[in-house]
Amino acid sequence: TETREFDNEEEARKEAERLRRKGQDVQIRKKGNRWELRRT
């Protein structure tokens, strides 16, 4: 599992969408005042 953190939700969602188009399974969750993007 690979995780990346983003400062805002929009960036996290854009990156998640990009990875999903490549066929990756991605989850986003709020972590304090940041957003965590998890690739499984």
Rank of each mutant, 00 (worst) to 15 (best):
T1V: 13
T1W: 15
E2D: 11
E2M: 13
E2N: 10
E2K: 09
E2I: 13
T3A: 10
T3R: 09
T3N: 08
T3Y: 12
T3S: 10
R4M: 15
R4H: 09
R4Y: 14
R4G: 05
E5V: 14
E5T: 13
E5W: 15
E5P: 03
F6T: 01
F6P: 01
D7V: 06
D7H: 06
N8D: 10
N8V: 05
E10H: 09
E10Y: 10
E10M: 10
E11L: 05
E11H: 04
E11F: 03
E11Y: 03
E11N: 04
R13S: 07
R13E: 11
R13M: 13
R13D: 05
R13Y: 11
R13A: 08
K14P: 00
K14I: 11
K14D: 09
K14L: 11
K14R: 12
E15I: 05
E15Y: 08
E15V: 07
E15F: 06
E15H: 06
E15Q: 05
E15P: 00
A16K: 04
A16G: 06
E17N: 10
E17Q: 09
R18D: 08
R18I: 12
R18V: 10
R18T: 09
R18Q: 08
L19T: 01
L19I: 04
L19Y: 07
R20G: 04
R20P: 01
R20T: 06
R21M: 12
R21Q: 12
R21G: 11
K22W: 10
K22L: 15
G23T: 01
G23N: 03
G23E: 02
G23R: 02
G23K: 03
Q24K: 06
Q24L: 14
Q24C: 13
D25Y: 13
V26R: 00
V26W: 14
Q27I: 14
Q27H: 10
I28L: 10
R29F: 15
K30A: 05
K30Q: 10
K30C: 08
K30P: 06
K30H: 05
K31V: 15
K31F: 06
K31W: 04
K31I: 14
G32Y: 01
G32K: 04
G32A: 03
G32Q: 04
N33G: 08
N33D: 14
R34D: 03
W35P: 02
W35N: 02
W35G: 01
E36H: 04
E36V: 12
E36Q: 06
E36R: 01
E36S: 02
L37Q: 02
L37H: 01
L37F: 00
L37Y: 00
R38A: 12
R38Y: 15
R38H: 15
R39S: 15
R39M: 15
T40P: 11
T40Q: 11
T40Y: 10
